[in-house]
Structures are given as structure tokens and as C-alpha cells.
Design a protein around this nucleic acid. Structure first.
Lengths: 211, 211
DNA sequence: TATGGTTGGAACGGAAGCGTATCGACCAAA
DNA sequence: TTTGGTCGATACGCTTCCGTTCCAACCATA
């Protein structure tokens, strides 16, 4: 409130030591996730995050207006790295198996196993977190949707298939086993799960429901 | 540490006003769940729980040695109420449909939708919480296992079916949709889901995996 | 080379929760 | 009727975290 000349015209662009250090931003993201995983979102302390990143609290408060904005930025930054392209496989089963293998790799990270359910719980509490969660879900959905789309084009799945249910079916069992039950499936387990999912998908036609 | 005569012999049983009030214990459990749902386990404050239950903090600390013990007791007490018997239906599909309907009813409660994922996140953080989660899972498992068992006896499912995978398949898609994605399925959705699950179960034979 | 403008770090006051200690109230058993 | 013993509530000291303010350090620009 003291010197609001800046709303008239900035005399000079920030330069030199006056520009935000990208590496510190990165370190803050990392520390944020580690603290989140360790303590949970509710017990997350920005003071600890700053300390873990080897920075002061001002470094955080100058970058992000709130804890939620911080979380959002961190997740967005993370999302960019994860989006890796996926090769196409000749059959639906092989596509699914590959998808499950990749998903297992992600869910193996202890950080992920702790943060994801926390994210879901928080999504049920606040609209902002729900929006963040939706964006994560959207990224996930795109990966699985390709598998589905290809299978329909190859006539391995009916065109009338219920997409929403199909998408659920692809990842839900693995998530359930690893995150909810806390068990990591073997490669053989995944193979069997692939079979089961494939069989389920082929039965996922709308307008056949009869109960 | 001051008067440890009590480890020698209790002179007299608690009586009169010196006996714990069961109704207050009950109120504490309820307040605990409400606070848990509202703030998350990490941010849970026993002071708030006590206030919400209309009690003092001592009422809590005298009953439970720790926050985890409190959680455990509350969940156990809750578990007793939930375990309701389930009627048998003539076909596997109808059994599954009924199971899904009941599960949907449970997952509709906002408290449950907030507490469950929080519980899973916390289970990945502490052994004690993992143990609590395992007990909840066990109770859940029993409900689903009956459905499976009956189907095998009726020859609707092969005896060699992979039980673990089958149990996962029964509830995972619904949990995923409601808790992870935050969407409540319609009755028709559940009917279709029943179809898909049934088809998957019939393919859940061990020793058929081939990938 | 001098400097403008932002940087990151440290310090501050206030709020909140923790776990304990203390207190009068209470009531069946003796 | 007395009394023993726990009850629930309040108060206390301590710790942690919040969000802000202040300041020297810093370096590309002019």
C-alpha cells in the first residue's frame, strides 16, 4: 500500500539477482511432496517444507498465495514430467498388460501411495482440491482412453462400449489392491488381472443391462 | 508416579459417579469421526473433538492412551454396528447387484467418503494404522466372500477361481468411481457394472494366464 | 561502474494444540 | 451417613506453525 507506482508503469524488468531461481522452485516442489507424503496434507507445515528445501518461508509466500496454490503448482509441474508416450501393442490384452505394468511402476513409489489417497480425501473436502484431482484424473484418463480407442478400431471391443465404466475397469482393481489393500501384485498377478479386465470390457455394452 | 499403590491391589471397585459414562464415550466416537472427516486425520485436534462432544480433554485422555488407540476403538465400535447379515439371492448376478447397492449406500455417506481414503493414506504411513485398515478390510472381505462362495457352490463360478483377484474385482470399480473420481453411479450404472464384473469373474481362473 | 529492484533468510507477535496437573462434583459401597 | 475414588472441566507451560515485516546480498541493466 505504500508505493503503488508499480501499477502505473514498471520502470525496469527484474534482472540479476532479482529474478526467481528456478532450481529453488524445483527444490520447493520436491520438499512439498516429501512432506506431504510423510505427514499428510492436513498436517503439512510450510515451515518444514521451506526448511527441507533449504530456504526461508518468504521463498514460498512470494511464489504462492496459498497452500492450495502451492499444491496445484507442484502437481502441475509433476504432471509435465510424467506424461510419457506409450507404444502401441498388437492386441488389446498386450495393451492392457503394458498399461498395468506402467501403473504398477507409478504406484510402487511410496510417495505416490501416500499422496494419492490423501488427495482423494482432500478432494471430498474442498472444491479446489476436487478441481486439482479432476485434472490429475483427466491426465490419467487420456492414457487409458488410447488403449480403448485402439481396441475399438481393431474391432476387439464393441463401439457401443460404455467408456466410463471401461475406463474405471482398467485401473480400479490395481489401485484397489496396491493403495487400498497395500499389496503389490506380481507380474503373473497382473497377467491374470489383464485377462479378467479384458473379459469384463467385452461385456461392457450399454443397453444390455437387465437387472 | 506419585501414588502407585494401585499396582498392589485395588481396594474397591469404581462405583457411583466414578464409573465411565457410556453415552459420553459414544459421543466422543461420533465427534471423532466428524472431526476426522472434516479436517483429516493429520489435522485432527483432540481439543476440538472434546469440545464437539461437549466434554473436556481429560475425558479423552483418561479413556485412550493415544490418538491411534482412540481411532482404533472408534472404528471397532463402528464395525460392530455395520456388520449386518445379507440375504442370499438365486443367481450370482443378483447377489453382486445387491452387494453393490449396499456398498453404494455406505459410500454415499460423506463421512465415509472422506475418512476411508484418509485411512488408506495413513495406513501407508504407520504400522498401527495399517493394522487397523487390515481389520476393516477383513470385515469387508467377509461380506464379499460369501457371494463368491455361494456362486462356486452353485457352479456359477469355477472352483479354481483366484479368490483374491475376484474379491478385488467385486468392489474396486465402485470404490474407484465414488471415492477416487467422486461420482455416484445410478442404479442402471450398477446393473451394467454387475454384468461386467460377472463376466470378469468367470474369466478369473488361475493357470490360464498366458502373457 | 553505479544502481534499481527483487531476492532469500531471519525475527516477530499471535493463535492453536499438546499433554499434564488440579479442582469441585458426584454417588454407590461400606 | 460417611467416604473413597473417579468423574468432567479448567488452567498451565510448552511447542509448533502461521503470515508478515525487515534487511543485507546480489547482479544484469543502463
Amino acid at each position: 500500500m505504500e508505493r503503488n507506482r508499480s501499477d502505473e508503469k514498471s520502470r525496469r524488468k527484474p534482472s540479476g539477482a532479482a529474478v526467481q531461481r528456478a532450481d529453488l522452485t524445483e527444490a520447493l516442489y520436491r520438499a512439498f511432496f516429501e512432506e506431504w507424503a510423510e505427514r499428510g496434507f492436513g498436517a503439512l507445515s510450510l515451515e518444514r517444507v521451506a526448511a527441507r528445501a533449504g530456504a526461508g518461508k518468504a521463498a514460498i509466500y512470494r511464489r504462492f498465495p496459498s497452500r492450495l496454490a502451492f499444491a496445484e503448482a507442484a502437481i502441475s509441474a509433476l504432471g509435465v514430467r510424467i506424461a510419457l508416450p506409450e507404444a502401441e501393442h498388437p492386441t488389446l490384452e498386450e495393451d492392457i498388460f503394458a498399461l498395468l505394468l506402467r501403473a504398477r511402476a507409478v504406484l510402487r513409489h511410496p510417495l505416490v501411495r501416500r499422496i494419492l489417497p490423501d488427495l482423494h480425501a482432500e478432494a471430498a473436502r474442498s472444491h479446489e482440491m476436487r478441481a486439482i484431482n479432476d485434472r490429475v484424473a483427466e491426465a490419467r484418463r487420456k492414457q487409458a482412453e488410447q488403449v480403448l480407442e485402439r481396441a475399438v478400431l481393431r474391432d476387439e471391443l464393441p463401439a457401443r462400449i460404455d467408456r466410463e465404466l471401461a475406463l474405471d475397469l482398467l485401473l480400479a482393481p490395481l489401485y484397489w489392491r496396491m493403495v487400498v489393500r497395500g499389496v503389490t501384485p506380481s507380474r503373473d498377478d497382473l497377467a491374470l488381472q489383464t485377462q479378467v479386465i479384458t473379459a469384463g470390457l467385452k461385456a461392457a455394452n450399454r443397453h444390455h443391462a437387465s437387472l
